[in-house]
Every structure is written in C-alpha cells, then in structure tokens.
C-alpha cells in the first residue's frame, strides 16, 4: 500500500481536500485530483500509473458512473479498483454503481476510518 497513486475525482474542492487528507495516512501516497470524469480520463492517460480511483457520482461535464463505465471498457485501465463516494445513498444507486464495475460504494458523509479500511482491503488483493 506504500507509494500508491490515488486519483480523486470530485467537483467539490472541500470534498477533494477531505478525501486527500484521509489518503495521507498511506505512506508516500501520491494524490492526483480531477474535477470531473473528463478531467479524470486525462489524468488516467498521464504519466502516473494510478493504483486506485475514488470518484463522486454527481459531477458536471461527465459524471462518475460514466467514468466507471469507460474505465471498465478500457483494456489498459480496466483493472484499476474504483471506489464511488457519493451522497446518493439509495440501494438501487449502490447496485447500479457496483454493476457498472465499481469495487466499493461509500455514502457521504464519509468516515475516514471506513474509507481507509475499504482502500486497504482493495489494495491488499
């Protein structure tokens, strides 16, 4: 889990900072931020190999579900674990997110300990 590269996709600067703050618990973590799905795809094609994506659902330009779907269709990116972090807490939203290929679904407001545990489990596999 050391030296992992995380991509945080979130339109709210407050949430981006909060998630990034939690990720600093991982030793030498590199946190790359994106403001929407399109920005995230650009960052994914950049020089940094991303180990895990954390994405919101409701974002302008391209939402999180579309991003998950595109990542899963891409041969180079499809193996990257994805965590959806969203205010949408309904069971059908969760099922939809997981069906599209997300590995975990966390509802806001987030608990840092829960986020860390979920990431640790995904990166330990």
């Amino acid at each position: 889990m050391d030296n992992a590269n995380f991509l945080v996709v979130e339109d709210s600067p407050t949430m981006r900072q909060l998630i990034s703050f939690s990720l600093k618990r991982f030793k030498n973590a590199k946190i790359i931020e994106a403001v929407d799905g399109v920005d995230a795809l650009k960052k994914l094609s950049g020089p940094d190999k991303i180990d895990l994506i954390l994405t919101d659902i409701n974002m302008p330009v391209m939402d999180g579900l579309k991003l998950v779907s595109l990542v899963r269709q891409n041969a180079q990116l499809k193996g990257i674990p994805i965590i959806i972090i969203t205010t949408e807490g309904a069971e059908e939203d969760r099922e939809r997110g997981l069906a599209l290929g997300a590995n975990a679904y966390i509802s806001k407001p987030i608990q840092s300990s829960h986020l860390i545990k979920t990431i640790s489990e995904l990166l330990a596999v």
Binding site: S12, P13, T14, M15, L18, T87, K108, P109
Partner: peptide, 14 residues
C-alpha cells in the same frame, strides 16, 4: 458555496 458543500458533504443534509 463552500458552506453549502460542507452542509451537504460533512453534515449530510439533503
């Protein structure tokens, strides 16, 4: 705008 974000994301208000 930031106060709104905080109330939604940290307090959990709809």
């Amino acid at each position: 705008q930031i106060v709104q974000e905080i109330v939604i994301n940290l307090i959990g208000a709809e």
